[in-house]
Design a binder for these strands. Structure first.
Lengths: 203, 203
DNA sequence: CAAAATATACCCATTTTTGGGTATTTTCTA
DNA sequence: TAGAAAATACCCAAAAATGGGTATATTTTG
């Protein structure tokens, strides 16, 4: 039997080592590499062509793990990708699914569920964490401009900062921010940051 | 040889399982329990009296892992406690050290360093991650009232919200918030939330 | 193409925040 | 106990944020 080759990308080495420790005990898998950042992960995926990859959805340098997923899909990497997330968030999950991930697991998933998911995905299936109905946030969809502005908001920019950086009117920025606040249900900047964090934005 | 008994508390099950997978391979340690929240961890520490405990410095329900450390020290728990943190932060590290932790490890620590630390601590030593000199933030010390207000700030409260909740003048709250902003170098609420997050506050 | 969604930019008024200041009481600590 | 640190609360004024509105291009999509 040829073992399926697994690749792991996560900025926390302890998680990589932990996953390795767990997977080493399994007969059907072998480990073929690891990375702490998406640049190394991308080049490794291209050269090693693993069967599976477990990728943290959040990675350092503000470049999210989703970017790596998108890159892999665009470059027709055959590797079946499982996203690993801290957040029980429908938006992130659906983003992952829409971009072609084969799975979405939470970091507080136990090893049995992890093993089941890996086996299932290796055999051609998918495994997406089932978000409890009561936690079903109505999925928040931001427009491209809103996403641009969110990036600057979580960098600590004020409205006028943003208007200068984007070369648009201060008033327009205010409108976008109001819409973003309304979508997230936040009534001030502090709350907005909190909501964005819950939804999976890193700052 | 009697194995040292290790306890693990972390809100991410995958980290617990990962650590377990790593530690199981070691001769000198055995695992005696685990928890995803500080309540269970506290009662387990009291009843199981492990030799070592690896505790996530950040835990859910806004009750930090540091609280567990403080509780353990106050209750004269003999267990030698190692704090596990995502943040390379001097304040957190020193808080841990001051409260009697025997170690402070980052989640992106590799397994070799982890093993070395565990062995060293088990033998009566301490192991604190060496924060690079260039990353040495001047340690920020908040006063008790400031910490109270920070808690409410990262819950999304405005100044008047806080003044009502604490039963003090709106103006006093403003002063505290100004001092907090000055200490963190933030010039608005969004920046403050970002800085607090960097320093290790969860919201 | 037509409709819908998005981005643009302004209007208004109110509230909140920000950045200074002073000053008194309380609490901690050397 | 004397001095330092912290908490209290006010002053002022400028800047920013909030919450509501209207209106018009532009872009996307069925």
């Amino acid at each position: 039997m040829n073992k399926k080759r697994i690749y792991i990308a996560d900025d926390h080495q302890i998680i990589i080592d932990g996953l390795k420790g767990l997977i080493i005990g399994l007969d059907e898998f072998s480990l073929c590499g690891e990375a702490n950042d998406i640049e190394k992960a991308a080049s490794d995926l291209a050269s090693l062509k693993p069967d599976l990859a477990i990728i943290d959805i959040r990675m350092p340098n503000s470049t999210e793990g989703l970017k790596l997923l998108q890159w892999a899909v665009k470059n027709k990497i055959s590797t079946r990708i499982v996203m690993l997330s801290m957040h029980q968030d429908l938006r992130l999950l659906q983003d992952a699914k829409n971009w072609g991930a084969k799975g979405y697991l939470l970091k507080n998933t136990g090893k049995e569920e992890l093993f089941y998911a890996l086996r299932h995905i290796a055999e051609g299936g998918t495994y997406f964490f089932e978000i409890p109905a009561n936690d079903l946030q109505t999925e928040i969809v931001f427009t491209p401009k809103e996403l641009e502005i969110i990036k600057l908001v979580i960098a600590g920019c004020s409205s006028s900062d943003i208007s200068h950086k984007l070369g648009i009117s201060d008033e327009t920025v205010k409108v976008h921010r109001r819409n973003i606040r309304n979508k997230t249900g936040a009534s001030n900047m502090a709350e907005l940051l909190i909501r964005l964090n819950e939804i999976g934005y890193t700052f």
